[in-house]
Computed example of a mutant assay.
Amino acid sequence: MLVARRLHLLVAVADTGSIAGAAATAGCSPAAASQQLGILESDLGVPLLERAARSVRLTHAGEVLVERARTILADLEAAEQAALTAGTAGHGRLRLAAFPTATTRFVAPALGAMRRRHPGLQLTFTELEPEAALPALRAGEIDVAVTHQYAPLPGPDLRGLVQSPLLADPMVLAVPPRLRPAGDGPARLADFADAEWIAARAASGFQAVTESVTRAAGFEARISHRADSNQAVLALVAADLGIALILRSAVTSHAGIALLDIAEPSRIVRQMHLTSRAGDPNPAISELRRELTRRAR
């Protein structure tokens, strides 16, 4: 029979790259950790580790078991949490992650309200972008995350997770006034295929919306400048250094900038969600969902 503490040790070997590192994580000696891992291999009847004089690595069987063990251990922790909370939101633990914009706009105030109502609830917060938050949810490192994805682009892998919608934030095209087309109608991105573009620094993942959207419009954007701050992006546009896709809610001043609605591709929207593990019984999640929904809207 698999024993949780031995699975924890095996996962720790995968995370730290050594038995000594796993032992430090578990608070035991390397000799004790090695003995417990040996018992785990003996119980299963297959080798899980390839040991050398100065290193250790997982066998294929070890990798398979680690992948399953992460889910098993997260489920065990969720079961323990359910017993501790005993059906009330005012006790236990709630670990939340969110990306910076949502944190500023409504997550931090919502957490403040939760703390005032439930001083006995252990609240922790980590700033994470969705591409880091979703794996952390699956691994049981956090309980809930405010995430985002862009429509109409393909969504992330949500196996084992559930989402509740919080807010839909449309995107517009920010251009210097000289590039504003004649007329008041919405713009086609393909009409700006030869322009210089400004985009976020990430070249992949959920932040690569400019690359993905322009590719869907039939061209590769010529990105000359990269910045993560909305204020920096808008300053670069106002300086006539390029054009950018930006959330309408991020634009607080239009000075030196023309904002164009986008006709094609249609309805480019950043959708925010509250994402958690399917079946998580933590009652604080339901209350946090209500608080975030109220404040987001």
Rank of each mutant, 00 (worst) to 15 (best):
G242Q: 07
A74Q: 00
R277I: 00
R70Y: 01
S18I: 03
V66E: 02
V175G: 05
L292E: 06
L123C: 04
G185Y: 05
A53I: 09
R115Q: 11
G256F: 11
A89L: 08
H273K: 09
Q271A: 14
E220R: 15
E287L: 11
A23N: 06
V107M: 05
D169I: 09
L2C: 12
H8S: 14
E196S: 13
T103M: 14
L236Q: 09
S55N: 07
A82V: 07
H118E: 08
A296T: 10
L179I: 05
D240I: 09
I19V: 15
A83R: 13
L76N: 10
E41T: 04
T59D: 07
L49A: 05
T103A: 15
L161R: 03
E291A: 14
E50R: 14
A79T: 13
F106C: 02
P165L: 12
T85K: 05
R117A: 15
L128C: 09
R188A: 11
V237K: 07
A239I: 12
L167I: 10
V209G: 02
A108F: 13
G62Y: 04
S266P: 10
A133I: 02
T252F: 10
L241R: 15
H60D: 15
A151K: 07
R70C: 01
T214F: 03
S276L: 06
P152K: 01
G205Q: 08
D228N: 15
A133Y: 01
A33E: 02
S249E: 12
D194E: 13
A69N: 01
P30G: 03
P281D: 06
L73P: 01
L189A: 04
P281M: 05
P47F: 11
P47T: 14
S249C: 05
R215D: 14
G218Q: 04
L111V: 15
I243S: 06
G17K: 00
A139I: 01
L121I: 11
G17T: 00
E141T: 01
R57A: 14
G87H: 04
R70I: 02
A139D: 05
Y150E: 08
T147D: 05
A108I: 09
A20S: 12
F99E: 15
I257C: 06
R178A: 13
A208I: 04
T71L: 12
P165H: 13
A244I: 07
L94E: 02
V11Y: 01
V146Q: 02
L49W: 05
L288E: 04
Q163F: 04
T104N: 14
L10R: 01
L247E: 13
L245F: 05
I257E: 06
A132E: 12
H254F: 12
V13C: 01
R6Q: 15
L121W: 10
L123M: 07
R54C: 09
S224P: 06
R116M: 07
D228G: 10
D15C: 03
T59C: 06
S249W: 03
E220Q: 14
